[in-house]
């Protein structure tokens, strides 16, 4: 894959930061607005897609595939672990909600602005899913970038 002109490269780098911020925003507000971990993760992964398109083969060395893979597995394991922590009551129990701890505030009654510090384990799980999805999709794109045509193809 060839890289693109300098203008495209610089533009890609300029829009990268706002795009990733938007992805993080979607993940963090998953329990309040439409969207969530998966959608935000896809947005973050699409930023890297932009990078790969602009920089072509140069971008291969920008990201470490092994690191992404470990992060992905860690996020998934974290999800199951978080679900297991609820076992005092039942699997996947939302033990943080209304507890006063992190994300543990109660939702006040009535139509007001959204409170991000609510919903217990749900935002945490959204963050983990966001990490997982962004890493997994980036790995898939990295693999496609490196792909050589198989020797067996067409046999």
């Amino acid at each position: 894959m060839r890289d693109m002109s300098k203008i495209v490269k610089i533009t890609a780098l300029v829009v990268l930061a706002p795009l990733i911020t938007f992805g993080l925003y979607i993940i963090a507000h998953g329990h309040l607005t439409p969207g969530g971990g998966f959608q935000g993760g896809v947005i973050i992964a699409s930023c890297f897609a932009l990078l790969f398109i602009a920089f072509g083969k140069q971008s291969k060395h920008m990201l470490n595939k092994e690191l992404l893979s470990v992060a992905e597995s860690l996020a998934l394991f974290g999800f199951v672990f978080l679900a297991l922590l609820g076992l005092r009551k039942s699997f996947l129990n939302n033990f943080l909600a209304n507890s006063g701890a992190m994300f543990g505030a109660s939702v006040p009654f009535g139509t007001k602005e959204a409170y991000i510090n609510t919903a217990g384990t749900i935002p945490l799980m959204n963050i983990l899913i966001g990490l997982e999805v962004s890493c997994a999709l980036t790995i898939i794109m990295l693999l496609m970038l490196n792909e050589k045509v198989s020797k067996h193809a067409g046999k």
Partner: peptide, 8 residues
């Protein structure tokens, strides 16, 4: 077994 309930 009910996932996430106060009691399964």
């Amino acid at each position: 077994y009910t996932m996430g309930a106060e009691l399964p």
